[in-house]
Design a protein around this nucleic acid. Structure first.
Lengths: 230, 230
DNA sequence: AAAAATCGGTAGCTATAGCTACCGAGAGTG
DNA sequence: CACTCTCGGTAGCTATAGCTACCGATTTTT
């Protein structure tokens, strides 16, 4: 196995805490397929049969949700070492719920999911770790989605902003900090329109709760911010 | 172990394809605790320490997400044999991300998660199946949450209703069917107010798209319903 | 069977947030 | 140095959906 590929794989969460030597043995068992996809081609097509747990080895790809009416929405961009299709691997569903599109030339390793819970329980030392990684990975994914639901379920704009800022304040432990998201991205994350977001931020500034310039924010009145979050 | 409990457990997805005799051996290893909860009490409280992977043995409970402002979103309703807390079991987080509420008197079995990837790999025959079941369960959970995020991200009321009804239509394969949720629950699920939901349903009826009475719905104009979903 | 609670539809009012449009400030490119 | 592009704030208009209130129909409780 190519040393470069091994390097990518050991850095991937799915092979976390598995040594390169163990990995070599495991790859013998797993018999992964490595495919190359040219720029602007589909790595996976929404609705078509599932082709296995994907690990991006090189290139850049995006996960795209295509609606019935044909509109395409980019969900995420994935980079070398990232996984895709991990949610479907062990589910009864056997078709892609979204498309994966190569933004540049990509090489991808596909693992047949049934091999992960395969025969080599007793042989491969890394087996148990792989299972554990998969469980942690799926748990983390589910929890992230759960947090997203939490934010989306919040009704008011003021409330969303307040809770978001309080969370950032908690992380930074300072009254002045830099947001990790640009306005556009923040609007997407909170699922509101950018203009309405800017407007509400402006109001909060007028009320003396916060000050801001671009992505930097200063909390002037923590009590009022807390009240805004209810 | 009570024969009735064993009956519930073998029907539970976590012990799927595990024979009662294997189950008996495994329960020796797992050392589960069984607790009883009275109607309208909390089985688990959001934010409090994690008490283990739960299996509902009897009664009916709902998993609810409570936001800071006190608004409650129903995630799912669980019945005997169903699990809860499976997301946290393998994650670093050690507190409940949501509450579990007993709608009627419930008895619940709690499994210590560390036991699942435990020591008894070589002893218990059902071990491998249990892991596989956990992976299937978590995948399914993640997919469900994903779907929920997709619903919440939808802006328009008409769009939400249309997509929901089309999904129900797809499940039932009939133009007339019974919704699995009451108005209140449906409003919660779609994260809209009940009155606005009723109003929009009324409009759709006036436009000849659907007919309905309580939880029963008849689709009169599938093409228009599809158009409403964009 | 009466009383209480739940369920669901309707209406009017209003706050909210989405949309379009515009404009200025930086950043990157030729 | 123009130029183009992205980023972000502002304003006006309007559609949308939330809220309160009410009422009749069901279901559950006593």
């Amino acid at each position: 196995m190519d040393a470069n590929i091994v390097k990518i794989l050991v850095s991937s969460p799915i092979f976390h805490d598995i040594s390169p030597s163990q990995l070599d043995i495991m790859l013998e068992c797993l018999k992964p397929k490595i495919n190359t996809f040219s720029k602007n081609s589909y790595i996976a097509v929404q609705g078509e049969p599932y082709t296995g747990l994907g690990i991006l080895l090189s290139g850049e790809a995006s996960i795209i949700k295509e609606s019935a009416s044909g509109s395409r929405v980019i969900m995420t961009v994935i980079r070398p070492g990232d996984l895709f299709g991990e949610m479907i691997a062990f589910s009864p569903r056997k078709h892609w719920p979204a498309s994966v599109f190569a933004q540049s030339t990509c090489s991808v390793m596909f693992l047949p999911p049934e091999k992960i819970i395969g025969e080599c329980t007793h042989v491969c030392g890394g087996y148990k770790q792989l299972i554990k990684n998969m469980l942690v990975l799926l748990s983390t994914k589910a929890l992230m989605l759960n947090q997203r639901v939490e934010y989306l379920a919040i009704k008011g704009m003021r409330e969303k902003i307040s809770i978001y800022l309080l969370e950032q304040y908690k992380i930074n432990q300072k009254h002045t900090f830099i947001l990790p998201l640009k306005r556009n991205e923040l609007a997407d994350f909170l699922s509101v329109s950018r203009t309405a977001l800017s407007r509400e931020l402006g109001r909060m500034r007028d009320e003396g709760i916060i000050e801001f310039y671009r992505t930097s924010v200063k909390i002037n009145n923590l009590a009022m911010l807390r009240r805004g979050a209810e």
